[in-house]
Design a protein around this nucleic acid. Structure first.
Lengths: 210, 210
DNA sequence: CAGTGTGAACAGTTTCACAGCA
DNA sequence: TGCTGTGAAACTGTTCACACTG
């Protein structure tokens, strides 16, 4: 089956595997699909299938070499190069995201922060001075890949439009609204409230099915 | 096709529809699948299919009555009753989540906050006094549905175990680790860094396919 | 006649069972 | 012997075209 297109659902699981490989303490050089399965909560055959999409990577009877596997997943996900990101929106959620520490391990560097509140502009958030959103255009030619937006829903679209003009190719959207972008730009939306809203469906009401 | 099991992917989209119906300004009583499609970024036939799973709801030639639709989606998602939630972990992310305002519209009320940092215990976060995680057990019989955890990965499992003992039926997990729970408890995990890690895969490297 | 509802074709994903190899 | 790699089957979800109806 060598060199197949990788299904989106497999791509969704790759960061999960990578996270486990990065953070688990490994006394061994190799890990089997079964052992990895226990750590990530995915079936072993699903893991093997996922890995099989990028060629024969494991050793029969042994498992997968951990370093090789990390390297391979990073390459597939294009995390083998540094990605520069900017944050727009220095409110509670934006601040939490910026200070989150945990992006760097995947090769992301948040190099600038923007807000439209005059009281915040010039103040520091972590090591970064907050700039006015009106100076977003200065980002052109600074090789920024990724925009992270954490602004109110009603200004999300205009914020994204400005970001797209600076040349970002991907946007992580924490704003609670649908935004439209040119086809060449990829948006991933995380709406915490919406995810929470999906939870009760799966909870038994009193006793009975969900 | 009346009274079919609702596919998980449809359930995933329901909060999206509900969000649009709640926040859009409606001059009309009804909305067509096409108009809703423009607002949420989902095809009109997908929307009609999703709605068809819960019986005939629309009026041919007109569309869907907005109030009726909201009510119906809320009922399906079990958002028609108030859900009491607690937060464990009053760090940056936890605080942002608590102060987020936007859960209440879906019928959630965060009634208590816990942390294990002695410096934080007794201080207020919003209107809520932070309590010690060691007093989590006092929640039993207080009708708490949902636990939200935003603690470091290495204490996530023990935090969840304590929460499960208090009787929560659903957990929203912001900790970057896989947690295991009894079958009767549903976990949804949001790992911001992992989502960000998935973004570059879909971005063109220089020019070319993603 | 505008817009819903849906069977049927199609596409994508997961599961299984087991051959193949270190 | 233990664990990978993978076709094929089973399952799940999406798209389409159009009959139907207020």
């Amino acid at each position: 089956m060598r060199y197949h297109r990788i299904p989106d659902e497999s791509v969704r699981r790759l960061p999960l595997y990578l996270r486990a490989l990065l953070f688990a303490t490994h006394d061994r050089e190799s890990i089997s699909s079964g052992a990895l399965a226990d750590v990530v909560g995915v079936n072993s055959w699903q893991i093997r299938k996922d890995f099989s999409y990028f060629g024969e990577l494991g050793t029969r009877g042994v498992g997968y070499n951990i370093e090789k596997l990390k390297k391979h997943i990073r390459k597939i996900l294009k995390l083998d190069v540094l990605h520069k990101a900017v944050l727009v929106g220095a409110g509670k959620l934006g601040s939490a995201v910026l200070l989150h520490r945990g992006f760097s391990v995947y090769g992301f560097d948040i190099t600038a922060v923007f807000d439209n509140d005059p009281k915040k502009i010039g103040r520091k958030l972590g090591d970064t001075v907050i700039q006015s959103v009106s100076s977003l255009h200065t980002l052109k030619r600074r090789n920024i890949d990724v925009g992270i937006i954490a602004v109110p829903g009603d200004v999300a679209q205009q914020t994204v439009d400005a970001l797209v003009k600076t040349g970002v190719k991907g946007i992580l959207n924490f704003s609670p609204s649908y935004i439209s972008v040119p086809k060449k730009v990829k948006v991933l939306t995380i709406d915490i409230a919406m995810d929470l809203a999906r939870l009760p469906y799966y909870m038994p009401r009193n006793h009975g099915a969900g």
